[in-house]
Amino acid sequence: MKKQIEKNIKSLLHSIWKSGDMAISWTKTSIPGKRTPFFIKNKNQIDQLVFDTFCAVSLATYLTEFNRKEILPEDFKGKLHITCKPCDARSVMQLFSDMQVSEELVNLIVIQCDGIADESKLTKIMSGYVSNIEEENDRFICKGIGGTEKSVPIRDCWLDKCSDGKNCDLPYYYGYYFVGNETEYRKRISNLLHTKTDLVQDTMSPKELKKLVNKELSSCIRCNACRNVCPACFCSDRCVFEQPKVNVKYLDSEDASKNNILYHMIRFNHVAPNCTGCGECERACPMSIPLSMFYKYFNRLMWEEFEYKPGKTNSERQKLLSYHLGEDLV
């Protein structure tokens, strides 16, 4: 089934490819279970692309760079094909509605996805380096060091967002290609979408919560990985944290947890209205800080206060930038 989907993506790209186009997709690396972003510039490179259970990287982030023409040749006139899982497609949709990327230049290819596995979780289960991974039905068959073999259910290595299932819905958009069986996919996710999320903020008192936040964020090294990988954080070179001429100096270079809290507070405060909950910040974090406890709170807030779900359409403006006199506040 998954090989068939990969074949279909390739044949689709072959059929719509025109000279001068570009595509962003995934490809294999030398490490088993790691997939890396891949820029296809020629038609004969299409066959190198890979789609399987390990394609965790969201490619929507590259579109923000595409906006600044960093990754494109200057005389680019073709279309940019981008392969997405449904959750990433919503990030792309949010970039459309924030007017960061022009819709005419991007061609969206949404791929049916049955949960994405996290390679780091697999290595944790195998307790060490994995030399070979093979997929069979719902299980991985992994070979570890010294020839030990283990079969692990795929569900155990899923990314956190996949078991939650809140971001799996498809956007309301007419212009995407869907690879896979769309009706079957919609049926599968329809039960998942209306689950309730339990958050620490509901049960804990401020003092307890502050202790927890302090503990979690004290390991932050402020490497900016969460900022750089976030598709909603698109003002990279004009970021508040990197303004040389800004009047207020927000952060000290000192690595105290107090500064770390402020860093994440300001970042989430900025990103909240257009965070689709893709979970890339948590995946990219080298210190594995559970940032989902924060963005889930803001996702729920946007829905409860404004009935607004980021990434649902390509035209609805985010609620903190659009206001017309006479409109209902809050």
Partner: peptide
């Protein structure tokens, strides 16, 4: 007014 609502919730989310 909307922005201030968000600030209040940011404070709440971080304890």
């Amino acid at each position: 007014e909307r922005r201030f609502l968000l600030v209040k919730h940011t404070l709440k989310a971080f304890g």
